[in-house]
Design a protein around this nucleic acid. Sequence first.
DNA 1: GCCATCATGTAAAAGGTTACATGATTTT
DNA 2: AAAATCATGTAACCTTTTACATGATGGC
Lengths: 170, 170
Amino acid sequence: MSLRHAVLGLLAIKPSTGYELTQRFDLSLSHAWQASHSQVYPALAKLETDGLVEVLSEGARRSRTWGITPAGRNELRDWLVESEVDRGQRNESGVRWFLFQLLDPADRREVIEREIEYTERTAAMLGSLAGRTDDPNPLEPSIDLGQRINAVMLEWLHDQLDGLPGDDER
Amino acid sequence: MSLRHAVLGLLAIKPSTGYELTQRFDLSLSHAWQASHSQVYPALAKLETDGLVEVLSEGARRSRTWGITPAGRNELRDWLVESEVDRGQRNESGVRWFLFQLLDPADRREVIEREIEYTERTAAMLGSLAGRTDDPNPLEPSIDLGQRINAVMLEWLHDQLDGLPGDDER
DNA sequence: GCCATCATGTAAAAGGTTACATGATTTT
DNA sequence: AAAATCATGTAACCTTTTACATGATGGC
């Protein structure tokens, strides 16, 4: 279970209310982890009983701002450094590309073109994230990685398109 | 739910018993999808009532070999071509790299080195898969993609290592 | 005063993992 | 004959998603 670690991590970056955490899962972690508020609130309650997070302040509308405790930082650090990475992560795109070969050329073309569009949109999004020279962005490394992977993905997709039986033949 | 589609896909490649399917999930799809036998058997039963798979033959030890029906092929094709890709795939490594910045340089070095080892092992494994020139491998494209992504990953990891505060300073 | 949004929670249903259970065949 | 492996299934538990439910505040 790494929902708790994702929550700890987000709180280590910045204290937040449960509501804000839900938004941050959507904005900055949606490509890697999702959690809706119905998971976040119980998770915070559990982390509190474990002494890993604490309420820093209470605000309007019954809101509570949570922060990570020193014990929470230890737990997070141990997870990141000492624990085994779970490599058996489910990946729907992986399944799709694995089964891709079963499609006839016309369908393959359609799938590839759809994916090229998506990849180009992602590239643009990553580009705008990286382009902010004003602040020294601590996320720069993972954005950079995303851009590099996106680039090879695009290349590969075009190679796959080129490899299709040409529609100029008769 | 794409467990059903993964099962349909594997059966579209080759008819199998439930037991063999479990093994094939482990061998060829473990990087993208896992399913244990306790998931596979009920899934086959469900797919049968839906008319998407059928028993082709019964063998020793009460074993039954399943195949995909024409309706099953339609369902699989529709999923691959017509349905939206679920992009919100959970990715523990993604979370880890996102939170990576929170670690101090010594810990970062440890994590990167561990990851370089893993990536090199993966590269070797992919290389041996791709090196089989004897059969025209229909999985070649996804192996190729895996190799390319692995290569940028390795580059990025070395760049991250180089970017760490040097331990030659005093 | 009404609506949108902020804010927090619980409950039901679906999906997935681990453990339990059993029997048949092959290998040693 | 015992052990390993093939082969299938169910049950309990945990996690995740979707739906239900409610109240507070700020802007119009």
